[in-house]
Design a protein around this nucleic acid. Structure first.
Length: 149
DNA sequence: GCCAACGTTGGC
DNA sequence: GCCAACGTTGGC
């Protein structure tokens, strides 16, 4: 089993939305590295840290798990969508998404707190210039975070 | 709103 | 295939 951190802007999709929906397709990722993680590595049952980004209180807001393996992201074919990609076709899709299911809402564990733990010093999300919206999390880092939540 | 970091685009 | 310009991310 692998562990991941997935960022979402709460103004777009928050932990409250996931509590309401139970599960959701993680569509709209338009970065190749993040796509490759979803398409090639994420498996049903993988654990996910749900992270709020680009907001007043960035941090980990809940736990989720991969509930459906990657399949072509429907929004790439939708001309009315912000995520439309004219170069993608159903025969040769370019973008994929998994689905994630809520495990539980947690307290908000702020970015500042994450930075305060020496145990998490090498976490991808904490490195300067990090922008990837989906990143692998080390099992030891995941276990440490779980203990602190 | 600012700005550093980084990915993508497109001309050559 | 290089690389400058441009756009986006995301914390502050």
């Amino acid at each position: 089993m692998r562990y991941w951190l997935m960022k979402s802007e709460p103004s777009e999709y928050s932990i409250d939305d996931l509590v309401r929906d139970g599960s959701t397709p993680w569509f709209g990722v338009r970065n190749y590295q993040a796509r490759n993680f979803m398409r090639d590595q994420m498996k049903v049952g993988d654990r996910v840290l749900f992270y709020h980004s680009s907001c007043a209180d960035p941090g980990i807001a809940g736990l989720a798990e991969v509930s459906v393996a990657a399949y072509p992201d429907a929004s790439q074919f939708d001309a009315d969508s912000d995520y439309f990609d004219p170069k993608a076709t159903p025969e040769i899709p370019r973008w994929f998404n998994v689905e994630v299911r809520l495990v539980k809402r947690t307290r908000l564990m702020p970015l500042k707190e994450l930075r305060s733990y020496a145990e998490l010093a090498t976490m991808r999300i904490l490195q300067r210039g990090n922008r990837l919206s989906i990143t692998p999390v080390d099992p030891a880092e995941y276990a440490f975070i779980l203990k602190k939540l």
